[in-house]
Design a protein around this nucleic acid. Structure first.
Length: 611
DNA sequence: CTAGGGTTAG
């Protein structure tokens, strides 16, 4: 109690000085006649400086007074510089003048390093501080923990976490939220969840942090249940919550839920800022409704680079490369500078449409005109584009001459092209490169064995599968999902676990018979195992996308659009069957595969059978 | 004298 009084007195004193100072500033002539300024004047003026420039001027003024060696004032000055992000100047003060900085200055330094992305230095400074005998407080932890997140360092995170307990900050909600965030970003979801569960009072920010952890770990269902839980508990959602929820809907392909969230945003008159707008565009695009994505885009009052990039990528994914290009040109005419990601969107769009010349043109334009240096992803688009178009030698040549080190994915694009164009010789060359870089991924072995199978080299196929078995590699199973009345249903290959399994299989049988009447022969070349023709038919018959679509047809109304998601690429036979179903059922069927969208309507697909 | 969670591709 006794301590409070002088502090109150001092605050009043400072504000008196401050108002005197502002009067002084509005009457410039009076400067020479005013009495010398006191310490309090400088301290309060320091807090009101709006720019580094103003701070420099005040600094110069202080150096001319007898306060030039006043540690208290210089500490505040260093603090003010650090608040503006002037790390070098701030640090110079600490090194040369302020030998024993007070806690708040340590905190500000740790924060400054962390915000500049110099995470290691931020964390090391924290350790140095503790070693020097300072007691960190809750502020310290909320500054150093994001640095641990930046490095994704669980080791540092745990060490700091023990300090949180040791110094008694484990009940501070800011600290807990920061801890949830770091554990989430480091991939330790269970620690994040445990901290969250033990929180007595949960708030919006802590929910958002856990939701981010779910999304990062691809636990989208959990993210959505947490969102529902928030509503039940009466915890308000904000734009950050909505961004996370929309990301989850986008990943799940849950269009109906996404639409519902959009309605909520409109109903609650939430401000649609660029982040939320981009998240909406992305959700609609990735859920197969490019029209709605475009609508959101046009309605956004302010569009930044990311909003433009989102819609450009959206059109690219949907195989509408000409629209993607015209939006790109519109963006440039609005004076925005495209970045590396914008070009990935544009180039991948051309790649899906086989527009090789346009692709090359933009690839050159990128560095010549926009000063964007090509990185691995751009080369990857070009290799896919050339390879898919059958220009395998050009693709291989490009890969040999790039300045960056190719990864297994980019070689993988070429390997896929080798499969499409049945070039075993190049494939063998390519796969050896891939296996040097990524020897334990079963996917490459499978792909290579499939290439051997297309050419009838069954002894080699057997050899590849032998390797998979010897190395105990696991093949990624194919799955597809579909949203029906807001519920996501997931199917695996051969899946018979669904409640409507019987109906699904008999529907598919019916489709097959109708197709056979019209002269359809199952495209069994996609089955790469040496089994008889009948078994092969059975195997493609049970592909997951087919099960999902059959279920969709059986459980929705005539004319409803079906939207299906698949983790791998669609096989040729399924592509034929889906085209047929879209014709006989008069349905629009939109399938999102690992790379792009296929929109089936009236017996044809938007990809023009090029994928 | 300082606080936590956010947008785009592959």
């Amino acid at each position: 109690m006794l301590l409070l009084k002088p502090i109150r007195l001092r605050t009043r004193q400072i504000s008196q000085y401050a108002s005197a100072a502002s009067q002084e500033l509005s009457a410039p002539k009076a400067v020479s006649t005013t009495p010398p300024k006191g310490l309090n004047f400088y301290i309060s003026t320091l807090q009101t400086r709006a720019s580094v420039d103003q701070l420099h001027k005040l600094h110069a003024e202080i150096l001319k007074t007898h306060f030039s060696r006043n540690i208290f004032l210089l500490t505040r000055l260093a603090h003010a510089y650090l608040k503006f992000g002037c790390l070098n100047i701030g640090e110079r003060f600490v090194v040369s003048i302020i030998k024993n900085p007070p806690l708040f200055l340590w905190n500000e330094r740790i924060k400054c390093y962390a915000r500049k992305g110099r995470y290691r230095e931020s964390i090391d400074l924290y350790y140095e501080m503790v070693r020097s005998g300072y007691k960190p407080n809750a502020f310290t932890f909320t500054f150093v923990l994001p640095a641990c997140a930046g490095l994704k360092s669980v080791k540092d995170c745990r060490r700091v976490h023990t300090d949180v307990l040791w110094f008694g900050c484990e009940y501070n909600e800011f600290v807990i939220t920061a801890l949830i965030d770091v554990y989430g970003k480091c991939g330790d979801l269970s620690s994040a969840r445990q901290l969250f569960d033990e929180m007595p009072v949960k708030k919006t920010a802590s929910c958002n942090a856990l939701m981010a952890a779910f999304v990062l770990d691809e636990k989208f269902d959990d993210a959505l249940s947490l969102f529902n839980e928030m509503k039940k508990l009466g915890i308000p959602s904000d734009t950050i919550t909505m961004v996370r929820v929309l990301q989850s809907c986008a990943s799940l392909g849950a269009l109906q839920q996404g639409r519902w969230v959009h309605e909520q945003i409109i109903r609650t008159q939430m401000v649609v800022n660029v982040q939320l707008g981009s998240a909406l565009i992305n959700m609609y695009a990735r859920c197969g409704s490019i029209e709605e994505a475009h609508h959101v885009f046009e309605e956004m009052p302010k569009k930044d680079l990311i909003a433009w990039t989102s819609i450009i990528c959206g059109y690219g994914m949907h195989g509408l490369a000409h629209l993607s290009e015209s939006l790109f040109l519109r963006m440039v005419s609005h004076g925005l500078r495209p970045d590396a990601i914008t070009f990935v969107g544009v180039l991948s769009g051309f790649s899906h449409n086989g527009m090789v010349e346009k692709g090359w043109y933009y690839f050159k334009k990128m560095s010549d005109e926009f000063n964007v240096k090509p990185v691995l992803e751009h080369y990857s688009c070009m290799v896919d584009m050339l390879g898919r178009a059958g220009r395998l030698n050009e693709a291989e040549n490009l890969l040999k001459h790039i300045t960056v080190k190719p990864d297994s994915m980019i070689w993988g694009g070429l390997l896929t092209a080798c499969k499409i164009h049945k070039n075993v010789e190049m494939a063998e060359r390519v796969v050896s490169k891939i296996l040097e870089l990524d020897p334990t991924n079963a996917g490459w072995h499978v792909l290579m064995s499939n290439i051997y199978a297309t050419c009838g080299k069954w002894d080699q196929v057997a050899k590849m599968w032998g390797k998979i078995k010897d190395l105990k590699l696991e093949k990624q199973p194919g799955w597809s999902s579909i949203e029906v009345t807001g519920q996501i249903h997931t199917f695996l290959v051969f899946d018979q676990s669904h409640l409507m399994s019987k109906e699904i299989y008999s529907y598919l049988k019916y489709v097959k018979e109708r197709m056979k009447v019209e002269g359809y022969v199952p495209e069994t070349s996609v089955v790469f195992e040496k089994v008889d023709e009948e078994t092969k038919e059975e195997m493609v018959f049970c592909h997951s996308e087919r099960l999902a679509i059959a279920f969709g047809i059986l459980s929705t109304l005539d004319g409803d659009v079906l939207r299906v998601m698949k983790n791998l690429r669609v096989c040729v036979d399924c592509h034929n069957v889906i085209k047929f179903i879209s014709g006989i059922e008069c349905r629009e069927i939109i399938v999102r595969d690992a790379k792009r969208f296929h929109c089936f309507k009236d017996g044809v697909c938007s990809c023009g059978d090029y994928w």
